[in-house]
Design a protein around this nucleic acid. Structure first.
Length: 560
RNA sequence: GCCCCUGUAGCUCAGUGGAUAGAGCAGCAGCCUUCUAAGCUGUUGGCCACAGGUUCGAAUCCUGUCGGGGGCGCCA
């Protein structure tokens, strides 16, 4: 249909805008169409049609008229349109639109054309968006806690891509040679390397105790022999963090998460970017000296206190390198910068917002997303996990145990804004009940239907869509049409958990349809072809949603 | 003390200011000579923490109270 837009809602919106112009003339009120954003939403019930708008109720006050009267005026102003079967007033003044079979068929063929990219949005002015996530320090493996950030960040990147943006995924490596944490980590590794040679060594105070630390220590001992102990601590830091980064990279790739750039903090020190950035801030008169330290006037940009850039011992703080780092993101072409951080970085927001403004950028192009804490629970009790104590649970272990799909879905079912209690034993025990299987099973079922149909020379044909009159079929079609809208929504408010709930809903509607409507019936060729088209569209929609979640789409599934 | 998140079914959680508040799991009762029963159908279960306010309309927005979680370094 040539006048059809990609989103049905947009098409209805435009139709309404035209109608409102006419109303504005009739009521001698020119403000109407720009003062009131029109909302068009999919209805929950079939009896309310397919789409609905509340515009008449919004306008009621302005025009001092009964909403139903306005609704009636609007409906009368809408030209005859084959897209709709009917447009009617309901309830307090809703206008409900019911799609025609023709429109439904046309739109369904869009789905079949788009295939597993159904729902992707055309974007005429794509932005370069730099998304930094995970970025755990190279002093330990990726834990389940950061796994949430990995699942969320990756899914958000996929969502933004589907929304037509150019996404650049970045991992920031805190490998600075003047980092106290990393120095301590290196000392802990050296301790274990010494032990490998039976040399006595005192464990550094507050050092890192995990198994992975002794593992790295042993690896260094095996690779370099006893001579390694003659090397200085910087050498140990480099050797151990390189190994740690490889470890992290391996676990993340296994989890389906890849980055375009692994950006080294130390590189900013080496090439003088940190120093240059500091000079720039000084030149802009955004710094001052106090107690022997250099401070950033961050309160000037709304921070609750000023921040130290250079300590009295001449070492620069992370604020300084982070400033240079964010400057680098923009210099390398980012229009928009998004940082995804764990809950312990909540205090980071104020100072980073200040830093961005100190760099002369607007807060419109910078966003920090904090996902909430993952607490570890055992027998109903919260168990603290700390890298220093070695009491961590690795993401890699969880994915080995219950699988990547299961783990990702588990994380993505919840909004990033809610706390997550994680009982590992419970998660493992209940992994068979994870709804991810329910949704994947719908996909597997479709695959076998399509295969069976093909064997009998029966093929999908969306032109016979008008034969799909069953309530289960109509609900399924309606749900398929919702995906673009959900992508748009998730891209703007970062609510990627919607895809998990959406895929469950879609699977539910499919399973219900499957039970009520037999698809492959050679004696009814046209109906079969229409239902096959519906199956195929459902399959593509599921594939698209699965991709957004980073979950696989199995062709077959059998209970063990 | 200040800041962030949160309170919805027995449990875990969805819910874009809109029509009768939903799902998964758990419970109960049914459904496999039929495209995969990891499925379907029916059913039980709700002062949406509480109190005000805004609105034609509030689980949703605002204020307050109470409960839960986390963060507030010249560590990163």
């Amino acid at each position: 249909m040539k006048h059809h837009t990609y989103l049905i809602q947009d098409y209805i919106l435009k139709t309404l805008q035209v109608a409102l112009l006419e109303i504005a003339d009739n009521n001698e009120n020119q403000e109407i169409e720009d003062k009131f954003p029109i909302e068009v939403t999919a209805t929950k019930q079939i009896s309310h049609g397919d789409y609905s708008t509340n515009i008449a109720m919004i306008l009621a006050k302005k025009l001092k008229k009964n909403p139903r009267e306005i609704a009636s005026e609007i409906i009368n102003s809408i030209n005859q349109d084959p897209t709709f079967d009917k447009i009617e007033i309901a309830g307090a003044g809703f206008i409900n639109f019911t799609l025609s079979d023709k429109a439904r068929s046309e739109y369904l063929s869009h789905v079949l054309e788009a295939q597993d990219k159904w729902g992707w949005i055309k974007n005429n002015s794509p932005k370069n968006i730099n998304v930094e996530f995970v970025s755990v320090n190279p002093n330990g493996p990726v834990t389940i806690g950061s796994g949430r950030g990995a699942a969320f960040g990756d899914s958000l990147c996929r969502t933004l891509t589907a929304a037509g943006e150019n996404v650049h995924r970045e991992f920031y490596i805190n490998d600075s040679m003047n980092s106290e944490q990393m120095r301590l980590f290196a000392e802990s590794v050296r301790h274990y390397t010494s032990l490998e040679f039976g040399i006595e060594s005192t464990f550094p105070e507050k050092g890192y105790k995990g198994d992975y630390v002794s593992y790295i220590g042993k690896e260094i001992a095996d690779t370099f022999g006893k001579e390694s102990l003659e090397k200085d601590i910087s050498w140990f830091q480099e050797e151990s963090q390189t190994r740690m980064i490889e470890w992290q990279k391996r676990d993340l790739e296994k989890f389906g998460v890849k980055f375009n750039t692994w950006f080294s903090e130390q590189s900013l020190h080496d090439n003088g970017k940190v120093e240059a950035c500091l000079e720039e801030l000084k030149k802009k008169d955004l710094t001052y000296e106090k107690d022997g330290a250099t401070w950033l006037k961050s309160t000037q940009f709304g921070d609750d206190k000023d921040r130290v850039l250079v300590r009295s011992n001449d070492r620069k703080t992370y604020v300084t390198s982070d400033t240079a780092y964010h400057q680098s993101k923009f210099e390398r072409g980012a229009d928009v910068v998004i940082d995804i951080l764990g809950p312990d970085h909540h205090g980071y927001i104020g100072r980073m917002n200040a830093v961005i403004q100190a760099l002369g950028k607007s807060l419109d192009v910078f966003d920090i997303i904090i996902y909430q804490v993952v607490r570890f629970v055992k027998n109903g009790e919260s168990v603290p996990m700390r890298k220093r104590d070695g009491t961590i649970y690795e993401l890699g272990n969880l994915t080995d145990e219950i699988g990547v799909d299961n783990t990702r879905f588990f994380f993505l079912m919840r909004s990033h804004d809610t706390h997550l209690d994680f009982d590992i034993e419970l998660a493992v025990r209940e992994s068979d009940e994870n709804p991810v299987f329910y949704t994947q099973y719908a996909h597997a079922r479709i695959c076998s239907i399509l295969k069976k149909a093909e064997e009998q020379n029966l093929f999908p044909n969306p032109e016979n869509m008008h034969l799909l009159n069953h309530e289960a079929e109509k609900m399924l079609v309606k749900s398929i049409f919702e995906l673009p809208n959900i992508i748009q929504l998730a891209a703007s408010d970062y609510g990627v958990h919607r895809f998990a709930h959406y895929s469950i809903e879609l699977a539910r509607l499919f399973h219900s349809f499957y039970d009520k409507c037999k698809v492959v019936q050679p004696e009814f060729e046209e109906l079969t072809s229409a239902r096959l088209a519906l199956c195929q569209a459902t399959m593509y929609t599921l594939q698209s949603a699965f991709w957004l979640l980073g979950v696989s789409a199995p062709q077959r599934m059998y209970r063990k």
